[in-house]
Simulated assay, not measured.
Amino acid sequence: MTYPTNTTLITLSRPFKLDGQEVETIQMREPTVFDKLAFEKNKGAALEKEVTMIAGLCGLNPGDLYQLPAYDYEQLTTAFNDFLLPPAERSNLSS
């Protein structure tokens, strides 16, 4: 069974260079149980594991996020945490 994937679009505080292109937004998909299992199996410190999971949810490599301003990374983690709420309690960012 495949569930529809909800996504949210995070607007960055300023353009960010990604693969030689400036981006102003990053799209994140809703995490699945598989994503949480992969997080648990990954090696490294908690933040390294988190970056790997967040990057995967955004269709990026972990290294893509290393130069992202901390404020914008916090927006990504906020979006992730929003997905952990029941759908009726999520912010309007999720679609």
Rank of each mutant, 00 (worst) to 15 (best):
T5R: 13
L85T: 03
M53Y: 01
R14K: 15
N42P: 00
M1C: 15
T11A: 14
P69F: 06
T5E: 13
G56C: 03
L60N: 06
D64F: 00
A70D: 09
L68I: 07
Q21V: 06
M53E: 12
F83L: 10
A46W: 01
M53T: 06
S13A: 08
R29F: 13
D64Q: 03
T25H: 11
Y73E: 06
E24I: 01
N6P: 00
V51F: 14
G56W: 02
N92T: 09
E89N: 11
N42W: 06
E40R: 10
S94V: 12
P4V: 08
P4H: 09
R14S: 14
V33D: 11
Q27H: 00
E24N: 09
V51L: 09
A46E: 07
G44K: 02
E50A: 08
D64H: 09
R90W: 08
P31K: 12
R29V: 10
S95E: 10
T11H: 08
A55F: 02
G20V: 02
L60R: 01
G44E: 05
F34R: 04
E89F: 01
P15H: 04
A46L: 10
Y3M: 03
G59F: 15
T5M: 13
L37I: 03
K49M: 10
A55V: 01
S94T: 12
S91M: 05
N6G: 08
N61M: 14
K17N: 08
E50V: 07
E22N: 08
T32R: 10
L84G: 03
Y71E: 14
A38Q: 08
I26Q: 02
A88S: 08
V33I: 13
D82T: 05
L65R: 01
T32P: 00
L76Y: 02
L9S: 09
A79M: 08
R14E: 12
L84M: 14
M1I: 13
C58P: 02
T52P: 00
L65G: 04
L84V: 01
V33S: 13
E48N: 05
A46R: 03
L57K: 03
R14G: 14
N81D: 14
L47A: 11
G63H: 07
S94C: 12
Y71T: 06
M53L: 14
Y66S: 12
T77H: 03
N81I: 07
A79Q: 04
T77W: 01
T5L: 09
T7R: 05
R90Q: 13
E24C: 01
P69G: 11
P4E: 15
L12G: 06
A46D: 05
F16P: 00
Q27A: 10
P15Y: 10
R90C: 04
D82Y: 10
A45R: 02
A45Q: 03
Y66P: 00
F39T: 01
R14A: 15
K43N: 12
L93W: 11
Y73K: 01
L68N: 06
N42L: 15
Q27M: 13
T2A: 15
F34I: 12
P62G: 08
K36Y: 10
L57Y: 02
L37F: 13
P62M: 05
I10V: 15
R14N: 10
L65S: 03
T8N: 06
N92P: 03
P69D: 13
D64P: 00
I54R: 04
M53I: 02
R90P: 05
Q27T: 12
